[in-house]
Design a protein around this nucleic acid. Structure first.
Lengths: 249, 249
DNA sequence: CGCATGCTTGAATTTAATCAACCCTAGTGG
DNA sequence: CCACTAGGGTTGATTAAATTCAAGCATGCG
């Protein structure tokens, strides 16, 4: 898709990017590290490995996943430029990470990271903030996997992708989907066939429009939100929820 | 609401309850607070409320849940004695919390909590540790919801309950299930009927044995582990990892 | 005792998975 | 430049799993 356009050398990037980055910030920690390159499909670390490093995605995407008993794969998230991997664990990695496409990353050692964070209250609150966001995403994903239909999952996914990775063509409502259908399926708890069929249906209804294999244009953003099932639940005034026996403090 | 008026002398460490609790520990923070009582079904806080307090469960159980669009409920976790609620957010609560049964809790204000944590490196690492465990549980739950069958979900659930809430009768393999079938269903992403049927099947196969409505005896622990689908997946090199996820503090 | 609530069981239905072709497209090599 | 190929993607038919609908059964409580 859109490769080969932004292949800067590290020295080109150094000055302008450092400008404006607070001395005490997580971004700042990584800035000093060299950029490494991962080819599409290459593994960054495996579930169970000693978690010796933390990573920042500079460009590209990672998939974060676990494999269970008979080979079933669960993708628990995608990381895009600016995201970090490995913050939420010490000891061993809880999941594996692979490059979805050619990807550039930076790494710092857990030891250095811990030392720097211990020294700086700013970094601490940044880390807390990251963990909170991670937790919030996990909550959303549990809701999606627990109670949403295939269509709702797809719509939620497209909207989240649109927010998380606002590409150059974002204003035209075009969302990049660097991952394969299998990746999407394993992320949404569906099969490739169901993902494909659902995309087809949304396309036929004029809600989205595929742009090649790895991008989609969102034509009816509002409808998409409706179908995502993320609407708040209000029942006019008081919550007449059958489960809730008591009233709140 | 009783608050901030019962500041006991901290030097009263000879108190049997305080004995053995490190001076700088999260437990210690709560120890100074009065115990409050929640009746079964009573709400502790609602999703969206200003997150002004953190809570510790002294006795009983809480359910943590969200409600989406048309009233569907997703329970993202249960909290038992010793667990804490509200650590992973500032601002507003991401979910609601209700007492499953009559429950006793302690609370401290977010402000006090933040202040104390800022002062103490020990508390900081305890908080990080809590957040990491919470993240690990969320990961496990995503795997369960994404790819496990009804039977696997039930077996996983029973095993987790057994570990998380080792009641007095734990040695006899008896697990307390204070929550209703609907709670279990909303936690596992199933319906009450499916939960019921699956329990019946496991019972018929002599793997478990219901003890009243709110407890189950695990007769074949090994089989249960097999059926839980949590076995590791060996592809090439044998990476054997003990089942180490899901340990609360 | 009688009601209410929660739980179980059975039958019908629905959703998504599975099984099985087939198509498209990018990449390869003649 | 085109044919060939492999992998990813789509589509259709069938099946399986879990949901929904519908009774009926226990348990607990006034």
């Amino acid at each position: 898709m859109l490769q080969a356009n932004n292949v800067h050398h590290l020295k080109d990037v150094t000055n302008p990017v450092l400008f404006g980055v607070a001395p005490d910030s997580l971004q700042g920690l990584f800035r000093r590290q060299p950029v490494e390159h991962l080819c599409a499909g290459q593994s960054l670390f495996l579930e169970g490995d000693a978690a010796r490093h933390l990573f920042e995605v500079v460009e590209g995407s990672l998939r974060i996943f676990r494999i269970i008993s008979d080979g079933r794969r669960v993708i628990t998230g995608f990381l895009h430029a600016g995201d970090m991997a490995g913050v939420s664990m010490t000891g061993n990695y809880l999941y594996s990470a692979e490059a979805v496409v050619d990807t550039r990353i930076r790494r710092i050692s857990r030891k250095l990271f811990d030392a720097e964070v211990a020294k700086s209250p700013e970094l601490q609150s940044e880390v807390f903030s990251l963990l909170r966001d991670e937790m919030a995403d996990a909550q959303d994903q549990m809701v999606l996997l627990s109670r949403k239909s295939a269509e709702e999952r797809l719509c939620s996914f497209l909207l989240r992708q649109a927010e998380a990775a606002p590409g150059a063509r974002a204003n035209a409502g075009i969302v990049a989907l660097p991952m394969t259908r299998l990746d999407i399926a394993d992320y949404l708890g569906l099969t490739i066939e169901t993902v494909s069929r659902t995309i087809t249906k949304l396309t036929q209804r004029g809600i989205i429009c595929p742009v090649g294999r790895h991008a989609v244009q969102l034509l009816k953003h509002g409808v998409l939100v409706q179908l995502s099932g993320d609407g708040e639940y209000f029942s006019d005034g008081c919550r007449q929820i059958s489960y809730a026996a008591g009233n709140h403090h």
